[in-house]
């Protein structure tokens, strides 16, 4: 290092002084010396690390892309399922209406008449003649055996 550069180095660290107050070289304190700057450490990047890093970036990017594809596929599937759900709900409602139409009294009566059934002129209440008959009450009234009606409630007829 030249003296000039050493001076410049010192001046950057110490406060400036006027030229008249500057000590002569002979009277310079002995403890001052020129410091040779140490060599900066050289960053060495191995090619392998670069390749691995690039590979990782590619893999991560690819992974994100794949994940995006899966998400997109999932969304498409979700859309399709929502559409199917909506269609099925519409179908359910339509079928419910069809059932209600088929169950409507006018249609039931028309179907019954088609099979030759007629509205009775009067009602005949059928009763067993002896109290020993199953279901007969001790008071003489008749309690119908309606166990089967739990299986086919629509067939439950008024007792007796």
């Amino acid at each position: 290092m030249s003296p000039l550069s050493a001076r410049a180095h010192v001046s950057s660290a110490a406060p400036s002084r006027s030229p008249s107050a500057r000590p002569k070289p002979s009277s310079r304190p002995g403890h001052l010396r020129v410091v040779v700057p140490a060599k900066r450490p050289h960053l060495r990047v191995s090619p392998g690390l670069v390749v691995v890093s690039l590979l990782m970036v590619v893999v991560v990017t690819f992974g994100v892309a794949i994940a995006q594809v899966f998400v997109a596929q999932g969304q498409v599937r979700l859309d399709r399922m929502e559409e199917e759900l909506s269609l099925e709900q519409d179908r359910y409602q339509a079928l419910r209406k069809d059932v209600a139409e088929l169950e409507s009294p006018s249609r039931v009566v028309a179907a019954a008449e088609k099979q030759g059934m007629v509205v009775p002129e009067d009602v005949v209440y059928l009763q067993p003649s002896t109290p020993e008959v199953k279901g007969a009450s001790p008071t003489g009234g008749v309690e119908a055996d309606t166990a089967w009606s739990t299986v086919k409630p629509l067939l439950a007829a008024p007792a007796p």
Binding site: E103, P105, V108, V109, A112, M117, V118, V119, P120, E121, D122, V123, V124, L126, Q127, S129, S137, T139, G140, G141, V142, P153, L154, A157, P158, A159, P160
Partner: peptide, 25 residues
């Protein structure tokens, strides 16, 4: 009369779900 008085049962028909086709004669 061949049958004694039948106690009146007042069964509420809340579960009737179809048209009743009565047996008649």
């Amino acid at each position: 009369e061949i049958v004694a008085v039948v106690e009146q049962e007042r069964v509420r028909a809340t579960a009737a779900t179809s048209t009743t086709i009565a047996a008649g004669g």
